[in-house]
Amino acid sequence: MAVESQRVQDFKLEKEPYYLPVGNEIELYEAAYHAGLPVMLKGPTGCGKTRFVEHMSWRLGRTLVTVACHEDLTASDLVGKYTLRGDETVWQDGPLTIAVKAGGIAYLDEVVEARKDTTVVIHPLTDDRKILPLEKKGEIVQAPEGFHLVISYNPGYQSVLKDLKHSTKQRFVAMDFDYPKPELEEEIVRTEAQIDADVASKLVKIAEKVRNLRTHGLEEGVSTRLLVYAGQLIGKGIDPLAACEATICKPITDDLDMQRSIVEIIATQF
């Protein structure tokens, strides 16, 4: 138990994560939290979903347990399992159980990537029962007041086979996220990367243009996160053209023609 307590403490955010609201998402989340409704965040990569959850966790004073879901993640990985420790077999809580017991926020990032059996585990946590059955241990954990379940996924690149079932989707309050409006994105990039407003403005203009290519061979547009990376490199003295090529151009496509056209777009600003 000492180990678990230590881990929960580690998940408590001490410093306010920077987050600039783009709409009424904070009020909506707070309302859902106080009503005990689980939340589903939808939006493209790097648009601020995770940062938003971190911010809300700090704002509500709850611990935050984030699980980056992947295709090998099973229900046991989430709730816990028996492990060998010396000569004895001991139960080890999984991250979801830790969050439930601590009454914190459990954030399952890219939940559709996880195996299907994980949805069976989260369903009882999403309705008014608010319970987490630990089948292998023969125990049911009742989530305390303050526990909140948040999932996220990116509808842009999920395949049909990996989409969430409607029976799961309809248990959540959905909040759509997208890239912020230019003036807000400029403010975010400027603040996060600690760069001047002019450079931030140019980076956002580049992003706007590149995002126009989303239906022309580019799977996803440039994320706000990549703009912040570009700003950080520029802030460290890297030539803007080289910084943008390394952060805005190359990570998002391997298509050489596409890369060249993005470089030309960058060159219109720097």
């Binding site: 590149v210 126009n212 290519l213 239906t215 022309h216 023609d257 993005i262 777009i265």
Partner: peptide, 15 residues
Amino acid sequence: ARILKLYATALCARD
């Protein structure tokens, strides 16, 4: 031609 097409598409947000 393809590079120019992508360039123009990005600039004016039209195909």
